[in-house]
């Protein structure tokens, strides 16, 4: 009986709603649709096309080798040779950066996308390395040719902003026991750190961001920790996008590289790195 009465009420409401909608004049419907389309178009231009256009123009001006200077079109062999040269120069630049960082007193991160490795490097020694299982580029980064990736987004660069789902230093505060009886009760088993999921996000002044996700899909920690991290990330991105609209000197587009490695490796790397670490990326 109850279900029947609910169904009847829903039906009545639907009928009323349809009657109301059919009473709206066609002109008003057309005005409504056109206004929504205009809002969408305006948003696409202001939030999408304008900042992206500004960024593409800026990047294109960085090119040293502009095509079209020679009367003869290049042969297939010379194009292949040029590709090899750019790749070799890129490798050389990475090694130069690694060599430079070897002289510094802090641990740095090398992301070698060529060999799919995330490496902790310190004084020229590879302290730790982890196999990257997934590499994702956003559209802007994927469209950039190697020459531009090398000259603009391979580093070494210092992290400008960073946030993560875990703490850098997991300190647990313990009150000193009053006497030996209390101490014996407290020392039955050592208090071990809680397992939490690992996600971290690094952003750099050149508008590149690197996001690291644990490759395990099932969460071992609280879902709220993951949500907190997501919230921090979207808040930061919103602020960055707002700045791109209000200040023309800001970069209009964020290049994003996402990688996935095992959870414990991600934890080791994040905890080993100093605050605002130096990063090198080999594409």
């Amino acid at each position: 009986m109850k279900i029947n009465s609910i169904l009847q009420r829903v039906k009545d409401l639907l009928v009323k709603g349809i009657a109301l909608l059919s009473a709206i004049p066609l002109k008003t419907v057309l005005v409504f649709i056109s206004i929504q389309l205009a809002v969408l178009a305006l948003a696409f231009v202001v939030l999408g096309l304008l900042p992206v256009h500004r960024e593409v123009k800026r990047i294109s001006n960085e090119l040293v080798y502009q095509p079209g200077n020679s009367p003869n079109s290049p042969t297939h062999a010379s194009i292949e040779l040029a590709r090899q040269l750019i790749k070799s120069e890129h490798h050389e630049a990475i090694l130069n950066s690694t060599f430079m960082l070897s002289k510094s007193d802090s641990i740095s991160l090398i992301i070698d996308l060529n060999d799919s490795l995330a490496i902790l490097s310190f004084k020229g020694i590879n302290l730790f390395q982890s196999k990257i299982s997934t590499i994702k580029f956003n559209k802007g980064l994927a469209k950039l040719p190697l020459y531009l990736l090398d000259s603009l987004f391979s580093g070494p660069f210092a992290t400008e902003t960073e946030f993560s789902s875990i703490e850098k230093f997991p300190i647990v505060v313990k009150k000193a026991p009053k006497d030996s009886i209390e101490a014996k009760l407290a020392n039955k088993a050592p208090e071990l750190p809680k397992h939490r999921d690992v996600f971290w996000y690094f952003s750099f002044s050149n508008s590149l961001t690197i996001e690291l996700h644990q490759e395990e899909e099932t969460l071992v920690g609280l879902r709220s920790d993951f949500k907190k991290y997501q919230l921090k990330k979207s808040k930061w991105l919103r602020q960055k996008n707002l700045n791109a609209i209000t200040q023309t000197n800001q970069r209009g587009y964020t290049y994003q590289l996402s990688i996935e490695i095992p959870r414990e490796d991600a934890r080791s790397i994040y905890r080993a790195l100093p605050v605002n670490p130096m990063v090198i990326v080999r594409y």
Binding site: I59, L63, Q66, P67, A82
Partner: peptide, 10 residues
């Protein structure tokens, strides 16, 4: 983005 390979290949 323009690919500088073609410029270099010239």
């Amino acid at each position: 983005f323009p690919d500088p390979v073609y410029g270099l290949a010239e």
